[in-house]
């Protein structure tokens, strides 16, 4: 009997495919999978969250202490005025009685405002200072209130949570805090269609309250000037959630023309104490 170990040809126990080919196929496959899954879960999460009654949304918002982070107490007169205007806008937008909008003020240079869960609307001093008249303020508030009206915060949270769960399941990391450490102050990301919907609702409100749209487009100009001054490149529109400022201004005129709404008219000035309160607030901040 003969015993031998012949030289066995290579490539029987090992695949001859180039490892990079394998890698690329898997990588592209998993990216497609993740993107599809994110879109499907994002859309269905938003749809499901839209079914949550507003009272339940209020309970989620009540888990966070809003008053800790806002400076409403410093400017009582301003708050009464803002809340009064908010209530008028809520009425003009036909909000149901249980959908109560609470407006808040934050003493910060940030040029921004946002709406979040439970009908809380936050306005930053940086933006309020730049408002030239009441019409623009109404446009701003109406836009944020429209977000609440169409349930954008809870929809955005719902889709965010579903996508987050899917990602943490795949990657194995855990993140249980739904809103992050900033709580209600973390502004939720709204999609472009959501912004568009809110812009339109805000225009409708402006027309209902003043009979014309003058001052409304000024809001977009403020953001545009700010971004220019800060030299922030507006990301290519695909990646940005807010439509380009120019596009928003164009849209504004287009919708106004289609609906036959007047774009000129007399502007309502802001009350005297408005800018005074903000100025004294700024000095408080500087002393700190």
């Amino acid at each position: 009997m003969k015993y031998e170990n012949p030289q066995i040809p290579e490539g029987i126990n090992v695949s001859q495919d180039h490892p990079l080919k394998n890698f690329l196929i898997l990588l592209i496959g998993s990216i497609v999978l993740i993107v599809t899954l994110s879109i499907v879960l994002g859309v269905s999460g938003g749809w499901l969250a839209g079914k949550i009654p507003f009272s339940a949304e209020n309970k989620i918002a009540a888990m966070y202490n809003v008053n800790e982070d806002v400076d409403d107490e410093n400017v009582p007169e301003l708050m009464i005025y803002l809340q009064d205007l908010t209530d008028q806008i809520s009425k003009a937008q036909n909000l149901t009685d249980d959908m109560k909008i609470t407006v808040h003020y934050i003493n910060s240079d940030t040029v921004n405002a946002f709406a979040t869960l439970g009908g809380h609307v936050f306005l930053f001093r940086g933006l309020l200072e730049k408002l030239p008249n009441e019409n623009t303020l109404t446009m701003l508030l109406a836009h944020e209130i429209a977000h609440v009206k169409y349930r954008h915060p809870i929809k955005s949270l719902g889709s965010g949570i579903l996508v987050g769960i899917a990602i943490s399941t795949v990657t194995g990391s855990t993140n249980s805090d739904i809103l992050g450490s900033a709580g209600l102050l973390s502004s939720l990301k709204f999609g472009r269609d959501m912004e568009q919907q809110s812009d339109e609702e805000a225009m409708m409100t402006l027309h209902a309250m003043y009979g014309h749209l003058n001052g409304g487009a000024e809001l977009f100009n403020i953001f545009h000037t700010m971004r220019k001054a800060m030299d922030v490149d507006e990301l290519s529109e695909i990646f940005s959630t807010h439509p380009h400022d120019e596009n928003r201004i164009e849209n504004f005129s287009r919708i106004a023309k289609n609906k036959g709404w007047q774009q000129t008219g007399s502007l309502t000035p802001l009350p005297d104490f408005f800018q005074q309160a903000l100025k004294s607030e700024m000095s408080v901040l500087e002393e700190d």
Binding site: V14, P19, F23, L26, L27, G29, S30
Partner: peptide, 22 residues
Amino acid sequence: YFKMFVAGLRNLFGGQMRSYET
């Protein structure tokens, strides 16, 4: 790390784990 990454992706889809064969 490369083999581990490819194997991790392979875990999502199933199939032959070619990166570990060699």
